[in-house]
Computed example of a mutant assay.
Amino acid sequence: MEWDDLRIFLAVARSESLSGAGRRLAIDASTVGRRIARLEAALGAKLFVKTPQGYALAPEGERLLPHAEAAEAALAGAREALSGPGDLTGQLRIGAPDGCANYLLPQICARLCQDHPGLEIQIVALPRVFNLSRREADMAIAVSQPQAGRLIVQRLTDYQLHLAGHDDYLDAHPPIRSREELRGHRMIGYIPDMIFDRELDYLTETGAEWAQLASNSVSVQMQAIRAGAGLGIVHDFAIPFCPGVRRLLSDQISLVRSFWLIRHADDRRSERMNRLADALGQGIRAEVARLQALLPEDAST
Rank of each mutant, 00 (worst) to 15 (best):
R183I: 13
P192W: 05
G232Y: 07
Q147Y: 01
L105F: 07
N131L: 10
L276Y: 06
P146Y: 06
S19W: 00
N274T: 14
K46H: 14
E205T: 04
I121F: 03
G149R: 08
M273Q: 14
E180N: 10
S83N: 14
E60V: 08
A21Y: 11
D197F: 08
M273S: 06
D158Y: 08
P175K: 12
D197R: 07
S215P: 04
A26G: 10
I233Y: 01
P52K: 08
E16Y: 11
R179K: 15
I284V: 03
G22R: 04
I27W: 01
G22V: 10
R7A: 13
H166I: 08
P52C: 12
L255A: 07
L92Y: 06
R290A: 15
A29V: 02
R14Y: 03
G95V: 09
L249P: 02
R275F: 01
L291Q: 08
P146I: 12
S270F: 11
G244L: 02
M273R: 11
D278W: 00
D266W: 12
R226S: 12
Q212S: 14
I176G: 04
M1D: 11
P52F: 14
L161D: 02
R128F: 11
H264V: 09
T51A: 07
E120V: 15
L213D: 12
E120H: 15
Q53D: 15
G244N: 00
V129N: 05
I195G: 02
P85C: 13
D171K: 13
W260D: 09
V220I: 11
L248D: 00
G54N: 07
I225P: 00
D193A: 01
N274V: 02
I123T: 01
G20V: 06
H235I: 04
N216Y: 15
E62L: 15
S133D: 13
L248T: 00
E72Q: 14
Q145L: 05
I195L: 04
Y169N: 04
I141E: 02
E136P: 04
Y159C: 13
D298Y: 05
P243C: 11
L132Q: 05
I176A: 07
E297L: 09
S30I: 14
E62T: 12
L104W: 14
F130G: 00
E60Y: 09
Q91H: 13
G149L: 10
H235D: 14
L213T: 13
A56R: 14
T206P: 05
L105K: 00
D267K: 04
Q223A: 13
R226G: 00
P66I: 09
